[in-house]
């Protein structure tokens, strides 16, 4: 074997150890609830905890709402920018990247100040209002991922000509978006949706400061009180994230093979 190959393998092994060791250690620790034997007791406790179930369900519902609102805002915007306002693309890209630059804590403080009980729009007054505020916040937080995914999808098809072809056949805007554009960027929307899902499931700052019972604060609460269960929760969270990434790969693969077939 050549020296350069040994070096490459060494780098891969070191990298893998760096990422996998803490994970393996966490997993091993999560199995040691019962003294002297390995068991999934911690997982049993976590999964049967009604607070876990409610927090997790709550987060999933929130993620789905966030994804729907995100799609409704991002798809028409990206379509319009691509079709009619290509000069605005750099500006829109900059705006969609802002959530990555501005820390979540600043955004949420802004929200609390803007929408508190003594403001014109007191969203934080009711639980439903706060839920709405939280999901709007998540839409902003996930904007960079959703917009990028959708925009890339739209660039891979000839949006302009497809739109004109549909128009000349008598179709109007909503019909063109629904029947022609959306189906052709389905996998791009899916990858955006999975990234949004992963972001929402693991989010802590927004939910904690707005005092909503999502998965993030639940994880923090358990971590403060128990020893083995947080390790089990961390592994569960990892598995969910990985499942999302896996689905994303599948969706991306489907998109690539469809594009490849076009050529």
């Amino acid at each position: 074997m050549k020296n350069s190959k040994i070096g490459a393998w060494l780098a891969v092994i070191l990298g893998a150890l760096y990422f996998l060791l803490p994970l393996i250690a966490t997993f091993e620790f999560s199995l040691r609830l019962k003294r002297g034997e390995y068991s999934f007791e911690a997982y049993k406790i976590v999964l049967s905890d009604p607070d876990f179930q409610s927090a997790f369900t709550y987060s999933i519902v929130l993620a789905i709402v966030t994804i729907v609102i995100g799609i409704l805002i991002v798809v028409p915007t990206a379509y319009w920018v691509q079709l009619r306002l290509p000069k605005l693309r750099p500006l829109v890209e900059f705006i969609t990247l802002l959530p990555l630059v501005i820390p979540a804590i600043i955004i949420v403080f802004g929200y609390v100040r803007m929408y508190n009980t003594s403001s014109i729009l007191p969203l934080t007054q009711t639980a439903l209002g706060t839920d709405a505020l939280l999901s709007f916040g998540y839409v902003a937080l996930a904007l960079p991922y959703m917009y990028r995914a959708v925009e890339t999808g739209m660039r891979s098809i000839d949006v302009g000509t497809l739109t004109e072809a549909a128009e000349s056949l008598g179709a109007k805007w909503p019909m063109i978006l629904w029947k022609v554009i959306l189906p052709n960027i389905k996998s791009a929307i899916l990858s955006g949706a999975f990234l949004t899902f992963a972001t929402v499931i693991g989010e802590f700052t927004f939910a904690s400061l707005l005092n909503r019972p999502t998965f993030g604060p639940y994880l923090q609460l358990i971590g403060a009180k128990r020893a083995y269960e947080p390790a089990a929760l961390a592994i569960i969270a990892f598995i969910i994230t990985w499942a999302c990434m896996g689905l994303l790969q599948v969706a991306g693969g489907a998109m690539r093979s469809a594009n490849g077939a076009k050529k």
């Binding site: 000839d158 000509t161 497809l162 072809a165 549909a166 056949l169 052709n184 389905k186």
Partner: peptide
């Protein structure tokens, strides 16, 4: 607008709907 004119158009890039 184009949808109201009842004209058929064929484009250089075919523009068939891939889906």
């Amino acid at each position: 607008n184009p949808a109201q004119r009842n004209v058929g158009m064929v484009f250089q890039a075919y523009a068939l709907f891939p889906n």
